[in-house]
């Protein structure tokens, strides 16, 4: 029986979908069988972030409406073994799905995969209840700013109330430079407020934008700091003990070097 993990945040735009795509791909690169599930009915995006948007035939709604078998609705990612996507319907809305229906789908997927990663929509309404209905565990994604952290705290409360445990944190878009100058809260500040375990820190990385533009998850690029962060997170998800490295506050010179060498 595989693990069903909901990736959620409360606030939109903090990197849930990017994190789901990269973590799912990273787990597959580590040899695990993974299905990433888009639970954002009506506003699906996991397909385009992963570069699979042109290959979707069936969605979870078709499975619920018994238009097709669950296995047939899974889109295989041809770049890595063991990775598939279950897309959300774009023409329905979140109320067209019941939490129990999503739960049944996740549990069935869990029988045949090591990991079921559910990409939750923003908000605390039906979309969130659908996404978290079948979850054993949760990953909360936040950025180090006040609105994202406040919403993350709200979501953590709801997840705890639903008995989902453990709940781990990904701190996304972290800038060591801004932390160094006192303009951004550091991980200790965020953890002190949210009081959950840290799964990993993803540094602010322009590579995220270019990889999303191309539809190729960042983890395929070994050298980028974001990619390395997601690979470490994936290893931690599999139970490996990987220490969280101190992100160095890079100086002016290395910033210039980085600017020239970066794959833009």
């Amino acid at each position: 029986m595989g693990k069903i993990i909901v990736v959620t945040s409360g606030k939109g735009g903090v990197g849930k979908t990017t994190s789901t795509a990269n973590l799912g791909t990273a787990l597959a690169l580590l040899g695990k069988t993974v299905v990433v599930v888009d639970a954002d009915v009506g506003l699906r995006n996991l397909d385009i972030v992963m570069g699979l948007e042109s290959r979707i035939v069936y969605t979870s709604m078709d499975v619920i409406e018994k238009q097709c078998e669950l296995s047939k609705a899974l889109v295989k990612d041809r770049r890595v073994d063991g990775l598939t996507l279950l897309a959300a319907s774009q023409k329905n809305n979140k109320d067209d799905m019941q939490p129990e229906e999503m739960k049944a789908i996740c549990e069935k997927l869990g029988e045949t995969h090591d990991y079921v990663l559910v990409d939750s929509p923003a908000g605390i309404e039906r979309g969130f209840s659908n996404a978290s209905a079948g979850a054993d565990e949760a990953i909360v994604v936040t950025t180090p700013d006040v609105s994202a952290i406040r919403d993350a705290d709200r979501i953590i409360g709801l997840l705890q109330h639903a008995g989902i445990e453990p709940i781990n944190l990904i701190l996304n878009r972290f800038s060591p430079q801004l932390v160094g100058s006192g303009s951004m809260m550091d991980q200790d500040d965020v953890l002190d407020i949210l009081n959950i375990d840290l799964l990993g820190i993803v540094p602010e990385d322009p590579g995220v934008i270019t990889s999303t533009n191309r539809g190729i998850p960042l983890v395929y690029e070994d050298a980028s700091p974001g990619s390395q962060a997601y690979m470490r997170i994936a290893r931690r998800v599999t139970g490996q003990r990987i220490p969280i490295p101190e992100l160095e506050q890079r100086g002016f010179l290395s910033n210039i070097v980085n600017w020239f060498t970066r794959n833009r």
Binding site: R150, G182, S183, D189
Partner: peptide
């Protein structure tokens, strides 16, 4: 400003 952010958050989250 990071300290101000933390203090403000702690307050509002406690109320939440």
């Amino acid at each position: 400003s990071s300290n101000i952010a933390k203090q403000r958050l702690k307050l509002v989250i406690t109320q939440d």
